[in-house]
Every structure is written in C-alpha cells, then in structure tokens.
C-alpha cells in the first residue's frame, strides 16, 4: 500500500507567530495519512484554527514546509491547487455561504474547478441528495437554520471531491439532533479528516487519533487519557 508511505498532508518544522502574541506554533511536525481521522484538542486561542489555515495556505508560515499530496506548497498558485483537494469547513457557516441560493453556493466550487454549468448543477444536486438536503436548491442561504447551514457548507466542500476534510468546530451552535445528523454523515465519508472540536463526545465517536496543541507544541495523546465527558 503506497498510501501508508505517502502522507496526504505533511508539515515539517512549522513556525508561526502573531505580531503581538508571540509564538503560536513552534516547530510543528505532523502527517496525515489516508483513512485517518485526527482530532486536534487544545484550549481556546491556542492556535488550532491557525494551524488549519496554515495547512491550506490562507496564512503564510514564518518557517517550515507544507506538503499537500506529495507536493511542496509555497506559492498561492500551488496552494490553490491543493485547496481543491483539502476541503476546509469554517467555524461560522455564514462565512462560507455567500451566494444568494443554496444551489449557486454548492455550484461555486465545481465551476471554479472548470466544470460546465450543466455538470456543476448535476454534481451539486447529487451531493445535496446524498446529504439528505434534497429540495433545498432554491432556498435562500441566509434564511436557513443553523443545522441546515452546516449541512449545506458540508455539501459545498464535498462537491469538490476532496481527499481530506478539515473541520473547524463543526458542531458549534448545533442542537443535539443536528449534531447527531452531522455525526452520522461524517461517519459514512471515506475522506481522511482533521477535526477541531471542544465536543469530546462528538470527537471520540469519530476520531482514530487524538492530538493536543499546547504551548505551541503538538503532542500525541495516548488513548488512555481521553476523557469522555
């Protein structure tokens, strides 16, 4: 199996600092392999979101290398190509849904990838149906409920057929029912995942590996000290 030897996303000796907060990430090494679901735990403001944004090049690392699917990513163009395969789900769904209607929002990715309009519509409708959101195509995005918005953002990301999903607190502000629905959907997905969540129950049901980010260091957590709240 080549997948064992080639990580999907690899980070080597990554450094990042905010102007007034000092070092947030120091010498981070990390690799994500196919089939893995990794949770990154850590306190508020410790730099978890920053790490995800660095991975897809939304922020530029001060030092260190990021390899996306075997390729070294440095320039915006290189990151642009890797982003298509690494679907990032933002903390606030409102940031992600910017088109007037649901269908247009879901279509946005495929159209950017160069699919024709007809193909994009077909792909979008298929993914909406797969997520159980059929019939939402013509709905206005800002009139959806929190749970619906979350599912649509997931559809927006999945329609681009990414190899990796990066989930930034996807259960934020979701009620139990919506959470369960999201959990069931995520369980069926084949993609490797990185999850940031403060919801221990949610992440323990889904994840295969737990990491902790603290004091600018990323450390492996042994399965014994996973506290199930």
């Amino acid at each position: 199996m080549t997948s064992i030897t080639n990580p999907l996303i690899q980070i080597k000796a990554l450094d990042y600092a905010y102007p007034r907060r000092g070092k947030v990430l120091s010498h981070i090494d990390f690799a994500l392999y196919e089939g893995e679901r990794v949770a990154i735990n850590g306190d508020n403001g410790v730099g978890k979101t920053t790490l995800l944004h660095l991975m897809v090049g939304l922020k530029k690392a001060k030092k260190g290398d990021i390899f996306g699917f075997g390729e070294l990513c440095k320039t915006e163009k290189q990151f642009n190509q890797m982003r298509a395969q690494a679907g990032l789900l933002f903390q606030d769904p409102d940031d992600q849904l910017f088109c007037p209607t649901v269908l247009e929002d879901v279509m946005f990715g495929p159209l950017n990838l160069g699919f024709s309009k007809a193909q994009a519509i077909e792909k979008s409708l298929a993914i909406l149906e797969k997520l159980g959101m059929k019939g939402f195509e013509t709905r206005i995005t800002h009139q959806l409920s929190g749970g619906e918005k979350r599912m649509i953002t997931l559809a927006c990301v999945l329609v681009m057929e990414p190899k990796v999903l990066l989930l930034d607190e996807p259960t934020n502000a979701l009620d139990e029912k919506a959470k369960l629905r999201l959990l069931n959907v995520l369980k069926t997905l084949p993609q490797a995942m990185i999850l940031i969540s403060h919801d221990k129950l949610f992440s323990s049901q889904l994840m295969t590996r737990q990491l902790t980010l603290a004091d600018a260091q990323l450390t492996e957590q042994t399965p014994t000290n996973i506290a199930v709240a």
Binding site: L58, N80, F90, D95, M107, I121, M160
Partner: peptide, 22 residues
C-alpha cells in the same frame, strides 16, 4: 474581519475572480 474570512472561504473553493450567477 468577516469580509476577510469570506474571501478566505472563497479561496478555499478555488475562487479566482469569477462569480457565477445561475
């Protein structure tokens, strides 16, 4: 700040200057 996040979200989905209306 929100505008910046939206721009980031658009970049994540391969935005490069064109916005499609359907």
């Amino acid at each position: 700040e929100r505008a910046e996040r939206i721009a980031d979200a658009m970049k994540c989905r391969g935005f490069c200057g064109r916005y499609y209306l359907n």
